[in-house]
Amino acid sequence: MDPASNGIQEPFDLIRLSLSERVFVKLRGDRELTGVLHAYDGHMNLILSDVEETIMIVDQIEGAPEGHTTVNIAKRKMDMLFVRGDGVILVSPPSRT
């Protein structure tokens, strides 16, 4: 394989290197999570702890021109969470320095 700059040979290596770290997860349905990654599998099912979920609620204003929306943000916290892999869009580990 191509010798990537930091020893990553396949995309899952990025996730493996993030175990026990706080990760950012972007989900379908305008939801985002941050939490500590405990486990994952090939479906990208995830186990996260100390999770904060951010939900972007986009509302079309009555009678307003097309595309004129307000975004409300709701947050909630969970101690332990199983995330089903098919909802995952993106996972970003903490910046490795």
Binding site: P11, D86, V91, S95
Partner: peptide, 11 residues
């Protein structure tokens, strides 16, 4: 902006 990002292939 992300230093690294994993994108799930189905998307």
């Amino acid at each position: 902006q992300y230093g690294d990002a994993f994108i799930r292939g189905n998307n």
